[in-house]
């Protein structure tokens, strides 16, 4: 039973890592907030989020065009920023909205290697992802403060754009 539970957790984390990667790639193209944040990453920066000791993982790269490219789930040899959860359960708690990202940082649930300023920027992108793609009552559990100025109409409009872009990216494999 325990092994089954761990297996399901691993599956969930792997799925969420992929969704985060796809979503950030799409949002760096269609959401003005993430687009502005992504533009602030150094060109060519490789960003990895992974679970110790051997994944699941997701890897992004900042392109010269200012967007994020999803490189898949295999960790490259060198990264500019790597956020490594110390245990599968810690990753599950954050990606399952049991524990907020800042609380996870405060509890040292993950190790941040590399460009710390980029790490803070990535956290803001994650907040935006949660605020846009999750229902408000879930998103609030992942961040310090839900953006009060984000109206339902704007949220739904951006949702459509983001999911549309994810679908297009998957079809065109861009």
């Amino acid at each position: 039973m325990n092994r089954l539970r761990q297996g399901l957790k691993r599956l969930y984390v792997a799925l969420m890592m992929r969704i985060v990667g796809w979503s950030l790639r799409a949002m760096s193209r269609v959401d003005p907030v993430v687009r502005a944040e992504a533009a602030g990453f150094p060109d060519g920066l490789v960003i990895a989020m992974t679970t110790m000791p051997s994944g699941p993982s997701m890897v992004l790269e900042k392109t010269p065009a200012g967007t994020l490219r999803y490189l898949g789930g295999r960790l490259p040899e060198r990264t500019g920023l790597a956020i490594r959860f110390k245990h599968l359960d810690y990753a599950f708690r954050v990606l399952g909205f049991v524990e907020s990202t800042p609380t996870a940082f405060a509890r040292a649930r993950m190790v941040v290697d590399g460009d710390l300023a980029a790490g803070i920027r990535l956290v803001r992108c994650m907040y935006r992802l949660e605020a846009l793609l999750m229902p408000r009552f879930i998103a609030r559990r992942g961040m310090k403060r839900y953006p009060e100025d984000l109206g339902l109409a704007e949220k739904l409009g951006l949702n459509l754009k983001i999911y549309g872009r994810i679908a297009l990216d998957l079809v065109t494999r861009s």
Binding site: G40, P102, L116, I120, Y127
Partner: peptide, 13 residues
Amino acid sequence: ALDDGSIIFNPVE
């Protein structure tokens, strides 16, 4: 200041 590593530990966003 928004990109400073300390800011994530501030109690308020």
